[in-house]
Every structure is written in structure tokens, then in C-alpha cells.
Design a protein around this nucleic acid. Structure first.
Length: 111
DNA sequence: CGTGTGACCTGGT
DNA sequence: GACCAGGCCACAC
């Protein structure tokens, strides 16, 4: 089934995130071959039952933690990211400036 | 079957 | 920085 295949690709995309790095939902969705399906990724993580899935490496486009502040997942993600050497400040990840805009997708990264 | 909701994204003001 | 409007998809009611 497609949906199952999509879920598998999304899972692979998340697993493909290097340790110490982070990615946005849109980013993951694009890598999985599902442009615009960021919500699908989010829903999967919310329903995820895979403890070895590095969901903590997935954040919003602004580099902001997706979960509501004070919730379990929020603190969990923050802690895990720090454990990987990622600097988290005020519920936000340092080193991640804005998400890749269309220009960067088309024109590529600034040299 | 229409509506609301959600670990979302982008562009404009 | 904030806020708003539009888009996208899956699911609960």
C-alpha cells in the first residue's frame, strides 16, 4: 500500500538524520518524497510506537521544538538533543537558522 | 458526508 | 520579532 510505503520512507528519512543534527518536518517530508506532507510526519511521530526512532531530531522549520512546552515529549526531546551535543536554548535549537526556502532548493546553498 | 483539529509550511503585512 | 491568510493531509465526531 502507498500509505504504508510512505510511512516507511518517512521513518527512513528520520533515521537518515545524522547524529547531532536536526531536520524540520517539511525537510523530512521532502526527503521521504512527500512534499507538503509535513503534517503526515507529525502525525506519525505523535502515533509512533518505535522507541529507536530518533523523533527527537525532528523539529519545526524555525528550529523550534514542536511539542507544547512543559509536555513529556518536549522535555524528552530537549534532553536527548543536548545529549547529542545539540545546543538547546529557550525551547529552541542553536545553529539552525531558518529552514531551507524555495530559493535555496532552486538556487542551492549560498557559496 | 461536512466540520473541526493537529508534534506543519510559506508568504505577506 | 508578531500576526494573519492560505495550503496541505489524515482522522475523530
Amino acid at each position: 500500500m502507498d500509505s504504508d510505503d510512505a510511512a516507511r520512507r518517512i521513518r527512513a528519512a528520520i533515521l537518515a538524520i545524522p547524529r547531532g543534527e536536526v531536520a524540520g518536518y517539511g525537510e523530512v517530508a521532502r526527503r521521504a518524497g512527500l512534499p507538503g506532507r509535513a503534517r503526515l510526519v507529525a502525525r506519525m511521530l505523535s502515533h509512533n510506537d518505535d522507541p529507536r526512532l530518533p523523533w527527537h531530531r525532528v523539529l519545526r522549520s524555525d528550529g523550534r521544538i514542536a511539542l507544547p512546552e512543559g509536555s513529556d515529549g518536549y522535555l524528552e526531546q530537549c534532553q536527548r538533543l543536548r545529549a547529542e551535543g545539540v545546543r538547546v536554548v529557550n525551547g529552541r535549537v542553536a545553529g539552525v537558522k531558518a529552514r531551507a526556502t524555495v530559493d535555496e532548493q532552486v538556487w542551492g546553498p549560498p557559496d
